[in-house]
């Protein structure tokens, strides 16, 4: 990038411009996260509150207690399920989007952006109306005698997957669309000139070159599921517990901040590792 300055005002100028933002990050991000890490190592006793000692028992409780280990496993399984759903539905849509031109692309793009600009609470509320025992889906299926009794879609994992899949699908579509658009059209011409046909072109050119978009889309959806709080709370209520909902429960209802902090730190670490791994993956691809 071109730099402003034939004559830079002062070499300290950019730091002065950055100062308010860095101060904000120090006070509202770095400080609080450090404190969170420290508290996750403290003890807790009901009635006494936090005990300022150093220990790892909050982490060992989360990883070794069968109840909490099931929640850890369940959260990651939910992430995998939602990611699979989004990939399955997102790829055809991204494929169509990347091929569309002009008005058609504008309309498709609008349909995909519309959910992104609508708050998650509102969209989840819509799913509650659709998925309930007297909701539209069950009502319709019952009326046409396709089922004998209402399907249980609310207050279980099925409903959470359906709703979260919808909430996170735009990220998958936009990320795959980007990498499909980046494919040089001359590759397709070359392949056709060499006699390759539709499916072969798709599997040998389209799919491998779309891989970076697929990977980053999957990471966005997976981490989005791990951190999702609103949709699991509203759709599953107290029945299904995931990491984010037990963090909330520990922090707000049970007031066991040390244990809540340990779970929060584990979640944070899992997500940062995933992002770092993706970054490594995309850098390796770029250099090779």
């Amino acid at each position: 990038m071109q730099s402003w300055s034939a004559k830079p005002p002062r070499s300290l100028a950019p730091w002065a411009l950055l100062a308010p933002n860095l101060l904000l990050l120090l006070l509202c991000l770095a400080g609080p996260l450090l404190l969170l890490g420290r508290i996750s190592l403290m003890g807790y006793e009901a009635g006494h509150g936090m005990i300022p000692i150093w220990q790892l028992s909050n982490y060992s409780k989360f990883f070794f207690d069968p109840f909490y280990r099931a929640i850890l496993g369940g959260t990651f399984l939910l992430g995998a399920e939602v990611t699979a759903l989004c990939l399955l539905l997102g790829f055809p849509l991204a494929f169509a989007l990347s091929r569309a031109r002009g008005l058609q692309r504008a309309i498709l793009y609008f349909c995909i952006l519309m959910p992104l600009l609508t708050s998650t609470v509102v969209r989840t509320f819509g799913w509650m109306i659709l998925l309930g025992n007297n909701g539209f889906i069950n009502h319709t299926l019952l009326r046409f005698h396709l089922i004998a009794s209402p399907l249980h879609l609310m207050y279980n994992v099925t409903g959470v997957i359906i709703a979260l899949g919808e909430v996170l699908l735009p990220f998958m579509v936009l990320s795959i669309d980007t990498s499909l658009l980046n494919i040089n059209p001359s590759y397709y011409e070359a392949a056709r000139n060499l006699g390759a046909r539709g499916p072969r072109i798709f599997f040998r050119i389209t799919l491998p070159l779309a891989l970076p978009g697929i990977v980053s889309g999957c990471v966005l959806v997976f981490t989005g599921t791990l951190s999702a709080f609103v949709t699991p709370t509203l759709i599953a209520g107290a029945r299904i517990k995931v990491m984010s909902t037990i963090i909330y429960q520990q922090a707000m209802a049970l007031l066991d901040w040390p244990f809540g902090s340990a779970i929060a730190f584990t979640l944070l670490l899992a997500i940062l590792i995933l992002f770092a791994a993706t970054l490594r993956f995309s850098e390796r691809r770029r250099t090779s």
Binding site: C28, L29, G31, P32, L33, L35, L36, I39, T223, L226, S227, F229, S244, I247, Y248, A251, W257, G260, S261, A264, F265, L267, L268, I271
Partner: peptide, 13 residues
Amino acid sequence: FPAIVLALALLVA
């Protein structure tokens, strides 16, 4: 960062 993690960090701070 996951919103719930930032939320708890800001709460304790």
